[in-house]
Amino acid sequence: MLNMQIELVKQLFRRTFTNRFPSKRIPKSVSGFLRSVERGERKMNPPVPVPPGFRGRINYDKKKCIGCRLCVKVCPADAVVFLEKEKKIRYHLFRCTFCGQCVDVCPTKALQTTNEFLLADYEKD
């Protein structure tokens, strides 16, 4: 018990370990809070930066796509669907498991991972 108590007392003089919430108190309206941050009225604690090579939301560049279907073949979650008419793909974000295998396999680099990770939403589009 004593060892833990020493640790706890030490902790009193240390910086808080957990990441800060975006705002100090829960705002009445989250979107209103974000808008006021954009206008520069209030300050927001920025999200924790991600390391290089983070597997976030996948960006699809339709112009570069040559319709080779390799990404359709390796996708474990059927997040990539091939469009027969256009010979292009459609990427479903809500099915994606963010493994990044399609990014590795893409021959023209039409698919790229981004650093975005705040993807939770109430709607599926």
Partner: peptide, 25 residues
């Protein structure tokens, strides 16, 4: 809470190595 704080460091290293904290892929 002490153990969970200690665990954060390895998760950060894993994130740096593999691109995600838990699902390493």
């Amino acid at each position: 809470h002490y153990a969970f704080r200690a665990r954060e460091k390895v998760l950060d290293v894993i994130e740096n190595l593999t691109g995600n904290r838990i699902m390493k892929a």
